[in-house]
C-alpha cells in the first residue's frame, strides 16, 4: 500500500534543535503544571529545563506535515468522548453479564493513510475506546490488528472494521493536509473541517 518511510534523523545543529518550539512550549507547560503555580520563576525554570532537554536529548522529528482543522478536531474529540462513554457501559454490561461469556476476535484493518502518525493515533484512539486492543500494528502495510472483546455487540467483524476506518477518517479530517486526504482517497476538506456532501460521518 505505501512505500516504507524512513524515520527522519534527529535534527542537527543548534538552530534546528531550538526550532522545535511546540515541544519547548509543551515541556514548559508541563513543568508549570507539575509545580502547580504559575509564577515567573516557574516559567523561566521550566523553559530552561526544556531548552536543556532539547539540546541534550533531541527526539527524532515525527516528520509530519499536516494542517490542523479546529472544527475537525472538535468533532474528533466529541465523538471520541461519546464513544468512550457508550463503550464503557457495553464493557461493564459484558463484565457483569451472568451467563454469556464474551466472544472475541482479532480483526485485520488495512488503513487508508500512509502516515505513521495517523497509524499511531488511530491505534491509540481505537485502543482507548473500551472493548478494543491493538494486538499488532504493521507499519509498512499500514495495517492494524485489533482484538475486539465481544464481536456481537460491535455488530460483527465488518461493522467493527468500518468503525475503525471512520475513526481514521475523523483523524485525517482533523489533522491531515488536503494532499494527504487525496492520497488516502478521501474527498477534499471543506471550510467546516469535514468532507464535501455525500459523507456519512
Amino acid at each position: 500500500m505505501s512505500t516504507p518511510t524512513i524515520t527522519p534523523p534527529a535534527p542537527s545543529g543548534l538552530r534546528a534543535r531550538l526550532n522545535r518550539w511546540p515541544m519547548l512550549l509543551w515541556m514548559t507547560a508541563l513543568w508549570v503544571l507539575l509545580w502547580g503555580d504559575l509564577t515567573l520563576a516557574n516559567v523561566l525554570a521550566g523553559f530552561g529545563v526544556a531548552v536543556l532537554l532539547l539540546l541534550l536529548a533531541p527526539m527524532p522529528a515525527v516528520g509530519y506535515v499536516g494542517r490542523v482543522s479546529i472544527l475537525g478536531t472538535v468533532w474528533l474529540l466529541a465523538k471520541f468522548i461519546l464513544d468512550v462513554l457508550l463503550a464503557s457501559v457495553e464493557v461493564s454490561k459484558m463484565a457483569l453479564h451472568p451467563l454469556r461469556p464474551p466472544e472475541g476476535g482479532v480483526i485485520r484493518i488495512p488503513l487508508r493513510s500512509e502516515s505513521d502518525v495517523i497509524l499511531t493515533l488511530t491505534g491509540v484512539f481505537t485502543s482507548l475506546v473500551p472493548g478494543s486492543i491493538i494486538v499488532e500494528a504493521h507499519r509498512f502495510t499500514g495495517t492494524l490488528y485489533v482484538h475486539v472483546l465481544d464481536l456481537p455487540t460491535s455488530g460483527g467483524a465488518e461493522a467493527f472494521r468500518q468503525q475503525v476506518l471512520r475513526q481514521e477518517r475523523r483523524l485525517l479530517y482533523a489533522l491531515a493536509s488536503q494532499e494527504d486526504l487525496a492520497r488516502a482517497g478521501l474527498p477534499r476538506r471543506r471550510w467546516w473541517g469535514g468532507p464535501g456532501k455525500g459523507s456519512d460521518r
Partner: peptide, 22 residues
Amino acid sequence: IGMVRFPDLLSRLHAATKPQVL
C-alpha cells in the same frame, strides 16, 4: 470483576486497561 470473570488473557486485558480510562 471483569478481570476475574473473563476467560482469557486478551479479554482480561480489556477489563484491566479500559474502564480505568473513564
